[in-house]
Amino acid sequence: MSAADPGFRHLLRMSDDTGLFEHARHAVVRRDHGYCTDDVARGLIVASREPRPARRLTRLAECYLAFLTHAQDRSGAFRNRLTFDRHWSEPPGVGDWWGRAMWGLGTAAARNAIPWIRDEALHAFVLGAEQRSPYPRAMAFAGLGAAEVLRTRTDNTVAASLLMDAVEAIGAPSEDPSWPWPQPHLTYANAALAEVIIAAGDLSDDRQLLTTGLRMLSWLSDIQTRDGLLAVVPATGWRQDTPRDRYDQQPIEVAALADACATAAYVTGDDAWQERVRRSVAWFQGANDAGVPMWDPATGGGYDGLTEHGPNLNQGAESTIALISTMQHAGRLS
């Protein structure tokens, strides 16, 4: 492992035989905050993306899959938060955690190197696909899982239906050329919305839908680039026709943009999208508004946010997985 590669060291540190802890104080796990389905699903995604996983990474995927199947009820909904003493603190639902669980299960069903994990993940995905969420982002995350399934199982009607319902939930972008987006504000994981539309257009051979998604992503990428550097919409979000804050920039935004641009590169074969993936990689390496690296080489952990005073040095699960996910794309760049 090179000094430039965070690997899975901190993800292993943040995990136990139950799941993945949500928070850390610097690199030290905050067990009192417990686990959440959101982050376990993210962990399953990055573990399943590795084509030749080491044994301990396979064990992580097994653990994360077991957590998600335990979180899922008979209707296909998911519980989100599990305390350290293994008690669910919330009832099953279809919020963002349902969408991310579906994304994780879809990715594992399509990409995991272990056949039985693929089979079990698909079983849980199909059950979860009986549900729909009223929240566009939850539907977008679930749609990304459906797209993963369809890339390897083109005749899976359950995944196809979920993917198109996700497109409908996201909605059509505004006709305003200065804001070609389905909503009047940008909040979190924004690029996921464009990525779903791109994937749906490609998988359904709908050129108009594909063009719409690419146009959305191009605009989002352009407005988040300043002087050649990535400067993502901060945690406070950004509403049309209002001033935009510079900080607190979140790693999840960078990772979502890298994912979407990598999908665009795969679908179109256009190397310009790979260059946009490189901007996300560079953001973690220090090509950002503060000029500082956004991860700790000593631990392999990703910092929790870019503030006006520099990095938030806490290394939670979401930020660490955002780092790993983006660096996985870096390893595939030509």
Rank of each mutant, 00 (worst) to 15 (best):
A4I: 12
A4D: 15
D5I: 03
F8G: 08
R9M: 07
R9Q: 12
L12R: 15
A27R: 14
V28C: 04
D32A: 11
C36I: 09
G43Y: 12
G43F: 13
L44Q: 11
V46Q: 08
R49G: 13
E50L: 15
E50Q: 15
P53T: 03
P53V: 00
R55F: 09
R56P: 03
R59G: 10
L60H: 01
Y64G: 07
F67P: 05
L68M: 10
L68Y: 00
T69Y: 02
T69S: 10
A71R: 04
Q72C: 04
Q72E: 01
R74Q: 06
A77L: 09
N80E: 08
T83R: 15
F84H: 05
D85L: 01
R86W: 02
W88Q: 09
S89V: 00
E90A: 13
P92L: 08
G93Y: 05
D96L: 14
G99F: 09
W103R: 07
G104H: 03
L105S: 04
G106D: 11
T107F: 02
R111N: 08
N112V: 00
P115H: 05
P115W: 10
D119R: 15
A129T: 13
A129C: 14
A129K: 00
E130R: 15
P134T: 12
Y135H: 15
M139A: 05
M139C: 12
F141S: 06
R151G: 08
T154K: 11
T154S: 15
D155I: 02
N156Q: 15
A160M: 09
A160Q: 09
D165I: 01
V167I: 09
A172E: 14
A172H: 10
S174L: 10
P180I: 06
P182E: 10
Q183L: 06
L186H: 08
T187D: 02
N190K: 00
N190W: 01
A199F: 01
G201E: 02
L203D: 07
D205F: 02
D206T: 02
D206Y: 02
L209F: 05
L209Q: 08
G213R: 06
L214A: 09
S218H: 12
S218P: 05
W219Y: 12
Q224W: 04
T225D: 11
R226A: 07
R226I: 15
D227V: 03
G228H: 11
L229E: 10
A231N: 04
G237T: 01
Q240D: 14
Q249H: 03
Q250F: 07
A255W: 11
A256T: 02
C261G: 02
C261Y: 02
T263D: 14
Y266E: 15
Y266T: 08
V267T: 12
D271W: 11
E275K: 08
R278T: 06
R279V: 03
R279F: 02
V281P: 07
A282D: 15
D289I: 12
G291A: 14
M294T: 04
D296R: 14
G300D: 04
Y303V: 00
D304E: 07
P311Y: 07
E318C: 09
L323Y: 09
I324N: 00
I324A: 01
S325E: 12
H329M: 08
